[in-house]
Design a protein around this nucleic acid. Structure first.
Lengths: 149, 149
DNA sequence: TTACGTGCAAACGTTTTGCACAAAC
DNA sequence: GTTTGTGCAAAACGTTTGCACGTAA
């Protein structure tokens, strides 16, 4: 992790109304640097392995705070664990049912975003994956909640 | 809950290699009857409210066992809680960000299944929903796991 | 009567909370 | 000097496990 990265990270935090404390800079820089979908514990462990001692509560609190400010995306993984990623662009997740790996689609292959779930299942040749299922989760406001406004 | 339902439920259980114990029949009949995406706790509570005293472990164990046999679908909800549904057909979930309700799509509107996520966002007129985001989760085997076989 | 299911309590892993201390502004 | 963040411990929560007892075939 370069000095440059840490300085940039500090500015990003500051510009979103968060004090660039040591813990926050380390957490945000780590998740941004790695192109993974990390659990809070993984993040905590990676930082400790890097020689940075942090309380678990600090990591939990800061991840949630940072995600709340929109600097990281928080989502529930297929295993039910809370995960964070730095990729804020809309994209799909490819989940390997054998190793549990989660990979982003739609980053270098934006075309995927315009295929239907049914078509995506046959997209194997393009990706090297062998797909067995697809599910769309749509977020929005339901009819009855719309009425209440 | 009619006698008929319970008899049917027993046969279904038996035909899938599960003894139709009182707990299993009640659990499966309940989830099947309600068109919802219930958590284990909700199921437990609903049964108790109906006058059926069951241990929590029994409910957890049996839901997992029944889902394992393919009679119910188990999935992780957007809140991270384990949920069960009786709708075994491939379908999408519409999640209301205000009330948390999860509704199935693609049951009476199979056409939705052939739309891309991008197109789905504009499907409001058909459904009464106001969509703000869509994400596809694809399940399959990743390239490196495919190599290992 | 032998295998299987139940219920209780205890254990487990993840996440949140309360509070004294420390750092940032 | 006041506000905000940290770290520890404890609590809270959903879920799983171990085991003695009960029920089904």
């Amino acid at each position: 992790m370069t000095e440059r990265n840490l300085t940039d990270t500090s500015s990003v935090l500051r510009s979103h109304g968060l004090r660039p404390s040591k813990a926050r800079v380390l957490i945000l820089a780590l998740v941004t640097r790695r192109r993974e979908h990390l659990t809070t514990q993984e993040i905590h462990r990676l930082l400790e392995n890097g020689g940075h001692r942090l309380g678990a509560a600090t990591v939990y609190q800061n991840l949630n705070r940072i995600a709340q400010k929109g600097l990281l995306r928080r989502f529930i993984g297929p295993d039910g664990l809370v995960r964070f990623e730095a990729n804020l662009l809309p994209h799909h997740h490819l989940l390997c049912v054998e190793c549990g790996r989660i990979v982003d689609a739609g980053v270098n292959e934006t075309s995927l975003r315009h295929l239907s779930p049914v078509d995506l299942l046959t997209a194997k040749p393009a990706t090297g994956w062998e797909f067995s299922g697809a599910q769309v989760e749509l977020k929005g406001v339901c009819p009855s909640c719309r009425k209440k406004r």
